Computed example of a mutant assay.
Amino acid sequence: MKIEEIQEELISEFAMFDDWVERYEYMISLGKTLPLIDENLKTEDKLIKGCQSKVWLNSEMNNGKVHFTADSDAIITKGIIAILIRAFSNQKPQDIINANTAFIDEIGLKEHLSPTRANGLVSMIKQMKLYAVAYQSQLNS
């Protein structure tokens, strides 16, 4: 499934909820389905800088596609990274690099997060794209 199709699915899913209490609950439930990072990988170099809570993000490349796993010590943040992993994991590096993140605004996520969580969201996306850039440069060399 393409990134854009997954993003459209997420927009539709969030549109089903009338208010942000329900959307937060849905986000928390998504966080519970997150492909968790191996405990041995919860190291300083996997921590995302700029997040208020701790978020560990790992990436691996298999068959030309980037696979992400993550964890967080905060349930809302875990839900946020779960949304991003759903959108960007199991995709080609170039597709992740080129991916539009407007779906986050369409869901209304950024405007309903505290400023520190919104900064963390931006940091998570940036880190995922940086991993993709590194894999793409390996493919090109």
Rank of each mutant, 00 (worst) to 15 (best):
K42P: 02
T43P: 01
K129F: 09
I48F: 00
I125R: 03
S53C: 05
I6P: 01
F103M: 05
D18H: 10
Q136S: 12
I11V: 15
S29R: 14
N63P: 00
M1Y: 14
A132M: 03
N63L: 06
D38E: 15
G50F: 00
E44M: 05
M16Q: 15
I97C: 07
F88I: 09
V55S: 00
Q52M: 12
W56G: 00
W56Q: 00
Q52Y: 03
I80A: 02
T116D: 12
N140L: 15
E13C: 10
Y135R: 06
L130N: 13
T33H: 05
N40P: 03
G108R: 01
K32T: 07
A134K: 14
R86S: 05
I107E: 00
K65M: 08
S89P: 11
D73W: 08
S114H: 11
A15D: 10
E13W: 08
K78D: 04
L10S: 04
I48T: 02
S114D: 08
A134F: 07
I83C: 07
I83M: 14
I125A: 03
E60N: 04
K65A: 06
I97M: 09
C51N: 01
Y131L: 11
V55I: 14
Q127L: 14
A70G: 02
E111D: 15
L57M: 06
K78M: 09
E9T: 09
S114E: 11
M128R: 08
A118G: 07
Q138H: 14
Y24H: 05
Y131T: 06
N62Q: 14
E5F: 09
M16A: 13
I81L: 08
L139R: 11
E25I: 11
E111F: 12
V21I: 15
S53A: 11
Q52V: 11
F88S: 01
N140P: 01
L57R: 00
I28Q: 05
T116E: 12
I97A: 08
G31E: 07
S59Y: 01
F103T: 02
L41E: 10
P115T: 02
V122P: 00
D45P: 00
Y24D: 03
I28E: 07
E60A: 07
S59W: 00
D38A: 11
E9C: 08
E5C: 03
A132T: 02
M128A: 13
E8I: 10
V122M: 12
V133P: 04
I11S: 04
Q52K: 11
D18G: 13
A134D: 13
S89A: 12
T101K: 03
V133I: 14
P93H: 08
L84P: 06
N90L: 12
H112Q: 09
L30R: 05
L36E: 15
R86Q: 12
Q7D: 04
Q138I: 13
I80C: 09
G50Y: 00
M27P: 01
I6C: 08
I11C: 06
E13D: 13
G64C: 10
E9D: 13
A82W: 08
E22M: 11
T43Y: 03
